[in-house]
Every structure is written in structure tokens, then in C-alpha cells.
Design a protein around this nucleic acid. Structure first.
Lengths: 108, 108
DNA sequence: TTCAATAGTTCGGAAGTATGGGACTATTGA
DNA sequence: TCAATAGTCCCATACTTCCGAACTATTGAA
């Protein structure tokens, strides 16, 4: 049975998006989610295995509250997906610009 | 006599840019600087007169360290300018996307 | 049904960060 | 030389972030 949990924020704010993605770990989580067809459990989406579970949970909470991801629960796992369409509707071009900058930085 | 002070960061990082602009006051400072032909003193660029001088000074330090602005000293005032070309060279499209999102948010 | 395993959340303390008041520096103009 | 102005520096308080430990919820097996 799949059910939505932790309903994501209704109103996505710019400050929320920027401060959420200002953290390199959260940015990598979002990048990972978009690459992997957009659905991963929390631990699977972790960019670094040494991060404490509680810290990771906190990062996902921040991403949810910023309206960047939506989480549904399937069995014991949580499935996380980027709300790409909602973000694009609210702030056209923003997410892509940030992700491209992230690629540019990694490539440098 | 004009002289450069507080040399701005050499390497502009994405995390630095995002966390600097995640603060609404700093984002408004950058918007204000770009509107007013890009040069304003610290107090003139303050979006809100009730902010403490020390807090404002701190915001400008963050913007400088993120590489977003350059500060030169002319007499008793500091002149601040957005390093638009440097930012564009490092992260094409990023600053414009953020500023347009800011306008979109304010208009909503 | 009971028990263990797994996935996340919540709590609390330690460490880091932001805010603003007051003292300080530097420049100008009287 | 003195007062005024623009910013910076320092410090105390308040707020965040990180992690370990305890907790909840779901599944699957004995």
C-alpha cells in the first residue's frame, strides 16, 4: 500500500529553495533523485554513507518543507521524488540553472 | 581617492552563492545594486532601515566572501557593485534565473 | 502471534552561526 | 582639532545543525 506522508509545502518560496539547495548534500540528493528516474528511498539517495541517519532524515525534512520533494511511503521504505513540474511552474528555469551550475562546478 | 577594499573571493562557489542569496535581505541588496546602476553605499543599499549597522555590515561581508559583490572605498563611503560578469562567467544563467524568480515571487 | 530486522523520525546535548548593541577606526569638513 | 558620518570588530544571546540514542512502523519469518 502506497500512501503520501509528510505532505510537502503548498507554497514554494525562493528563500526556501535556495537555502535548501545551498547545502551540498541536499543538492546532491536532488541531483541523484532526478538522475534515477526520480524515485529513491532516503538511504539510497544519500550521497555519502557516513552521514548519520538522523542527519539524513533532517535533510529530507528540509527538502520536503521547501517543497522540493514529495515523499510517499511504500512498505518500510519512503519513496522520494523531486517536484520538478511544481518548481518549474513557480520559478521557471531556476532548478535547471542551479543544476547546470552544479554540473559546471563539478566539472571544473 | 578610490581604492579597493576587502578583496572579494577569487573562486565563486555554488554553495556560497546560493546560501548568500537564500537570505531575503541579501537578495534584496543585490537586486537594489543591479537596479541602481550597480553602485551604492552600504546604508543606501539596505532594504530596511531598522537593520542594525553591524548586521548590515555582516551581510555585506557574506556577499563579498561569496564573490557576489565588490567593494571599493570612496571617501567615507563604501561603493558596492555586483560582480555580474564574473558570476555569469562561472555559472551562466544562474544569477538571472534567481533574480527572475525573485521578481516572480514578489509579483505573486 | 511473537520476534527480529529494516527504514525513518524524534529527542537532547554539543558545536557552530546569526543578530544586534557598543566600542573602535577612518575619512571628511568645519 | 573637533564633530559627524560610514563601516568594522567584539562579545553576549538566540537560533541551527549535527550526531548518537531511543522510539515508531512495517515486514517477514519462526
Amino acid at each position: 500500500m502506497v500512501q503520501f506522508v509528510h505532505p510537502a509545502t503548498k507554497d514554494i518560496t525562493l528563500a526556501g529553495v535556495l537555502s535548501a539547495l545551498a547545502d551540498p548534500i541536499r543538492l546532491q540528493i536532488v541531483r541523484g533523485l532526478l538522475q534515477e528516474s526520480g524515485c529513491l528511498s532516503c538511504t539510497a539517495a544519500s550521497p555519502c554513507p557516513t552521514i548519520a541517519k538522523s542527519t539524513l532524515s533532517n535533510h529530507f525534512r528540509v527538502l520536503r518543507e521547501a517543497g522540493l520533494i514529495q515523499t510517499s511511503k511504500k512498505g518500510v521504505e519512503h519513496q522520494n521524488a523531486v517536484r520538478a513540474a511544481d518548481i518549474e511552474a513557480r520559478f521557471p528555469g531556476l532548478l535547471m540553472a542551479i543544476l547546470q551550475s552544479s554540473v559546471a562546478e563539478a566539472g571544473a
